[in-house]
Amino acid sequence: MRMVYADQMVGCPREPDDMTLSSSDRHTADMPAHAALPRLAAPLLDEAICCAGRVAAAGEPDGGPNSAVDGNADSHADSNANADPELIHRYRVSLRQLRCLLWAYAPLLPAGMAHAWRTRLGTLADLAGPAREWAVLATELAPHFLPEDPARAQPLLRALEQQVARETAACRRAMRDAAPAAVLSSLRATLADWSAVQDRSPPLDAFARQRLRDAYRILRQRAARAAADADAEAVAKAAAQADTGTRTLHRTRIAIKRVHYLTVLFAPALARPAARRVKSLRRLQLHLGRANDTTVALMLLDPSAPRLCGRHLRRLVRGRLSCLNSRYEAQARRALARARKRLKP
């Protein structure tokens, strides 16, 4: 009999970027910050639990939840394949948003609590990392590096699709084994228990403004470092010192995401409308995301390429991806240089 997972038959509650307090909850802005935390975390927890359950259930054969391990993983991964990439992406985004929220609340939470839970959430996100990375490579980046000759392109495209299927099947099995819903339910209870015993904290609006200022300060520091890497001397130094410039861009991208997510989550508690700032942050995130995707793609292809294609095609693919990566990194640094003066709450 087929196991039914929670939320399998219904859609997940909201899209990740819409996860903020509704208009009916705007009075939460006047709450003490500690009282608002469970309410802010609730839609993120709901989203992560829902997406994890649907991903785990999607590839489950009729024989039961463990049959996929013994059967053909590729065939199981093909079922509901169209929904998998989006569900996996939403699962990872909701966990990133939770980690950002815990970062913001670290000064109020008991020492070490935010760090410990952020680490656990990072481990849960890693369950879906390879599946998401291969999906991006096969769908978003492949058109940029596939050979023009269909006879040469089709075998590589099929090999990439099979790799995505394998990673997706592995992701589903990992979801079943790790039981993210239990971990996330424990976090929900932990936050509720902590909030219930607190009797004093700053109002949410003042707390949100201060933590956004802190997040912007970190972002400005990292953006300045990343923009400096655009100098010829810095680029040469980065090339000689194991992609220092790429790591700097990645750290800046994480800081942009933190500011973006906190701006969305705290929007009802902020005096100024957040829509314009979110739009600007998304543009920056897009530039740095492209650079990161191509960097990850090159890392994925290095050990896997011999299995995916022949030597000559491998050289062509890597050359095109390397050129694309260089162009995207240059665009990202220019975008950061233009936006640096506007990076403030």
Rank of each mutant, 00 (worst) to 15 (best):
M3T: 07
D7I: 00
P13F: 07
P16K: 09
D17N: 05
D18F: 13
L21T: 01
S22N: 01
S22W: 15
S24M: 01
D25C: 02
R26F: 13
A29L: 10
A35K: 07
A35Q: 05
A35N: 04
L37E: 00
R39W: 15
L40P: 05
A41K: 01
P43N: 00
L45D: 02
D46G: 02
E47M: 10
E47L: 10
A48T: 04
C50S: 01
C51D: 05
R54C: 02
A56N: 11
A56C: 10
A58F: 14
G63K: 08
S67Y: 15
A68Q: 13
A73C: 10
S75M: 13
H76E: 08
A77R: 04
D78Q: 10
A81R: 08
E86I: 11
I88V: 15
H89W: 11
R92I: 09
S94Y: 14
W103Q: 01
W103Y: 12
Y105F: 15
P107N: 09
L109G: 09
T119I: 12
T119G: 13
G122A: 04
A125C: 12
D126N: 10
L137S: 02
P143S: 00
E148C: 02
P150V: 05
L157F: 11
A159E: 05
R166L: 14
T168G: 07
A174H: 12
A178L: 08
A178S: 14
A181W: 14
A181H: 11
A182G: 07
S186V: 13
L187C: 01
T190I: 15
Q198A: 08
R200I: 04
R200Y: 06
P202Q: 07
P202M: 09
R211L: 14
R211S: 04
Y216N: 00
R220F: 11
R220W: 12
R225C: 09
A230C: 02
A232L: 10
A236G: 07
A242L: 07
A242W: 15
T244M: 12
T244G: 03
R251K: 14
R251G: 12
R258K: 08
V259E: 00
H260L: 13
V264L: 11
A274R: 02
A275T: 08
N292M: 12
T294M: 11
V296G: 00
L301R: 03
L301I: 05
R311V: 13
R314F: 05
R314L: 10
R314A: 04
L316D: 00
L321Y: 05
Y328R: 00
A330P: 02
Q331H: 13
L336E: 00
A339E: 01
